[in-house]
Design a protein around this nucleic acid. Structure first.
Length: 456
RNA sequence: GGUCCCUUCGUCUAUCGGUUAGGACGCGAGAUUUUCAUUCUUGAAAGACGGGUUCGACUCCCGUAGGGACCGCCA
């Protein structure tokens, strides 16, 4: 059976590192097993969902190179949800409730204050048919809860545990006690559906075989397994990866905006670096730069994902980005270099790639070899002495050695005292690629001008 | 208040009752670069705390502390 997996973001915001990790894991799984990757936009929250966010999510996935085979929007599927709801109501799996949100909220707070679990007491289950008819006649609108199976129903009885178990792809044996949970609301007072419900119906209809999502869903999974069964379907396999925490070890949720795909794009990071980091962070594998998605997919192994929270550090991502760039060949970047206004060829790329953190840094070095920079002259006399022995063109890879040997015999300077001033004069920078490789790309006129302290 | 998960070098982690506790990032050193960066080699560096179980515990159990998740008419 080829797997069918899905990534189901709600279009209420941009994709961020936490989302991307889920998306990447799912995509890689489909890729590795030649399965299908479905993008499902969970937009049942019509107040917060927007088309703009939906499009931004598509753009972000495109940028990451996570192509999807099929796409669905929950807003398009209400007819199907209504049909399933009718079936479940007929079975008695869904029951109407008339408490207001305020009332439920107050009740929860009271329970918490009394140090009791904030669980719905199933009061609506005690409503008689006449009670319900009267309320409906009075214009009251019900919301509908899913009656979790086999739990005790109050009446002074001690709650009985109702255990739902599954063999989690990532966490191993998992058990959720439905007896400690409220019957979830599946249909709002206004007749619209909630995620817990729509997600299960979609997963059934789209034939999803593996649900890989964050640890924040483990309790949901307990409920949803019961829902799958109530709907007469066999639950798929589940895998719950740990969530990410920040470099300080605390929850990421407050600063997700700064960790959005958009911000990674803005900073000039490589999609492949983001993918590698997203797939490898929080696993027992080393976080290393891989240049192909297939290589990454081959490494994917859910059992290697830690159940402890993963630590995400942007600095680490940037380091990874640099290491990835250092591995890339000219052909991999040629087009994007041109877009950056860098016209250098393979010689140029090979000379500078070891000094890049982001690709746009190449522009700096292109300015150094082919455009204008401000030289830094520490000692004008030494600079003119160097200029005096600058070899005639044509220049090649031996030019640097010949020139510096000539300067050394003329001035007696050696080591750092010889090279550091030359680097500053020729590049305006403290560090950079080997000058041996840079020099021939600069050309004699430019070098001479810079040695005179002129912008060139 | 309840339920669940987690805790090994600075960081991410391997180990699944007997190991010189391994790797990666970062850091230090050396080599290359007659400079720096890159690259390569190499070094230092760890089992939260307290109790058990056991011939023997990082590994199993209990407790404490710390971290994470959930307990929504959000997803």
């Amino acid at each position: 059976m080829t797997p069918r997996v899905r990534f189901a973001p709600s279009p209420t915001g941009r994709l961020h590192i936490g989302n991307i990790r889920t998306a990447t894991l799912n995509w890689l799984y489909a890729r590795k097993h030649k399965g299908t990757f479905l993008l499902r936009l969970d937009d049942t929250d019509t107040v917060r969902s927007t088309d703009e966010f939906a499009q931004a999510i598509r753009d972000d996935l495109d940028w990451l190179g996570l192509a999807w085979n099929e796409e669905a929007r929950q807003q398009d599927r209400t007819a199907r949800y209504e049909a399933m709801a009718a079936t479940l109501k007929a079975k008695g799996a869904l029951y109407p409730c008339f408490e207001t949100e305020d009332e439920l909220d107050r009740r929860r707070k009271r329970q918490l204050a009394m140090h009791r679990p904030p669980i719905y007491d199933r009061a609506a289950l005690k409503l008689s048919k006449d009670d319900i008819a009267a309320k409906l006649a009075a214009g009251e609108k019900p919301h509908w809860r899913f009656r979790l199976p086999n739990t005790s129903e109050g009446r002074g009885l001690a709650p009985q545990p109702t255990l739902v178990s599954w063999d989690d792809l990532i966490r191993g044996d998992q058990t959720v006690d439905l007896g400690s949970l409220s019957d979830p609301v599946l249909i709002r007072e206004d007749g619209t559906f909630l995620y817990t419900f729509t997600s299960v119906i979609d997963d059934i209809d789209f034939g999803i075989t593996h649900i890989v999502r964050g640890e924040d869903h483990v309790t949901n999974t307990g409920v949803q397994v019961a829902l799958f069964e109530a709907a007469g379907a066999t639950p798929p396999a589940f895998g719950h990866h740990s969530l990410l925490v920040g470099a300080d070890g605390h929850a990421l949720s407050k600063r997700l905006g700064a960790l959005s795909v958009q911000s990674f794009r803005d900073e000039g990071l490589e999609p492949m670096a983001v993918l590698c980091h997203a797939a490898l962070v929080g696993t027992s594998d080393a976080i290393e730069p891989l240049t192909s998605r297939d290589e990454l997919a081959a490494k994917l192994d859910f059992s290697k994902i830690s159940t402890a929270p993963g630590r995400f550090d942007v600095a680490e991502l940037k380091t990874l980005n640099g290491k990835l760039l250092h591995k890339l060949g000219f052909a991999d970047v040629a087009e994007r270099l041109r877009e950056l206004g860098v016209e250098g060829g393979e010689d140029f790329w090979n000379a500078v790639r070891g000094n890049l953190e982001v690709l746009s840094d190449a522009r700096l070095w292109w300015d150094v070899v082919a455009r204008e920079i401000e030289p830094v002259i520490e000692d004008p006399k030494a600079a003119s002495a160097a200029a005096a022995v600058l070899p005639a063109e044509p220049w090649g890879e031996d030019t640097w050695g010949a020139w510096t040997a000539a300067i050394k015999s003329a001035t007696g300077a050696k080591g750092r005292a010889l090279f550091h001033p030359l680097r500053l004069a020729l590049t305006g920078r403290e560090s950079g690629p080997e000058l041996k490789a840079l020099l021939p790309l600069m050309g004699r006129a430019r070098v001479l001008a810079r040695l005179e302290g002129k912008r060139a």
